Amino acid sequence: MKKYFFLSLMSSVVFFNSCNSTDEYELITDPIQQRILLSKVTTVYYDNPANPQTTVSTLEYNNQGDLSKMRSEGRTSIFEYDTNGKPSKINYYNSAGTLEYYLLYTYSNNELQNTKAIYSNPDFNRTITYTYNNGKVATSTQCQSANCSNPSLSSYTYNGDNITVETSEIGGTFPSSTKHEYLYDNQLNPYTFTNKYFRIMMGGAYALSKNNYASERISFKDSAGNWVQNQNIIYEIQYNSAQLPVQVIGKAANGSNYVKYNYEYILQ
């Protein structure tokens, strides 16, 4: 489970009383027919096992079940929609309440074509453009400059509704290539009822897939152009009675902790 995908969206947070009692979830016989909305994600990173780092992100929704506000690490994001209910703009505020930048959405029919981050300093502006194959995101390309001289490209290979291979190529002065290969369980993942356009913007295989990672192999491309595997992560998943994850622990091949996620939900 890639450690940074959630943070790309979570520059925000609002605190909720999450409905996580067993009785409430037992009322749900078909989770596809009732919205169970992700309200809080607590992530623990074990890059330094002696000093794990924890981040908390919470999410708030409007009456239509659309994401309206998020907060994380003191930063806040406010979401706007067009008359058709599609996301149109996200305003990102720092911990002092000052607008840092905003993100604009552009569509072609019902497909998200690109997002553009606009800063007061145009040198920081960036655009992410998406391509599709049979309605699924095939690639996303990030450009930091007007001529897109050093793009970063992510490409996805699917098996059904899940991404099995995610390849990332980062351009610039020190280019790099990384490959993630995934196996999945057969349960819905925490972002099941999140707006599909936000899932696209979040990026990464987890947000774009239907189910939850069971394992992840990570490889990098060496100077000779060969893929070299350097990590193999196994995920242990605990579910609530609606069969949505409430805790996911990723462990490296040697049994050490890699990452831990705790998920909380509300019913709407």
Rank of each mutant, 00 (worst) to 15 (best):
N189K: 05
S223A: 14
N147R: 03
F124Y: 14
L7Q: 09
P49T: 07
P175V: 09
R71C: 03
T131E: 12
E73H: 10
R71H: 03
D123K: 14
F198W: 08
A242M: 01
R35F: 04
F79Q: 06
N232F: 14
Q229P: 01
Y119G: 04
K251M: 03
I218T: 11
S177T: 15
Q144G: 11
R71D: 08
L38Y: 08
N17V: 12
D30V: 01
G172H: 04
Q231Y: 08
Y235L: 05
L9P: 01
L153S: 02
N110T: 10
Y25F: 15
K136I: 05
G97E: 07
I78L: 14
Y158A: 03
T29R: 00
C143Y: 10
E100M: 12
Q33S: 09
L59C: 10
G204W: 05
N147E: 13
S140C: 01
Y197H: 09
Q142Y: 06
L7I: 00
K179V: 15
L208W: 05
P122L: 06
S241A: 12
L188F: 08
D185Y: 10
Q238Y: 09
P151V: 10
L104V: 05
P49F: 04
N254P: 02
V137K: 00
A146H: 07
I249L: 15
T115Y: 01
T141P: 03
N94P: 09
M1V: 07
T173Y: 05
E236T: 14
T192W: 10
Y184I: 12
Y132P: 10
K251E: 02
I128V: 14
N20M: 13
S241R: 08
S72F: 05
F220Y: 15
S145Q: 13
Y191N: 00
K3N: 01
N186R: 11
Y263D: 06
T178L: 04
T58S: 15
N240Y: 06
P245N: 02
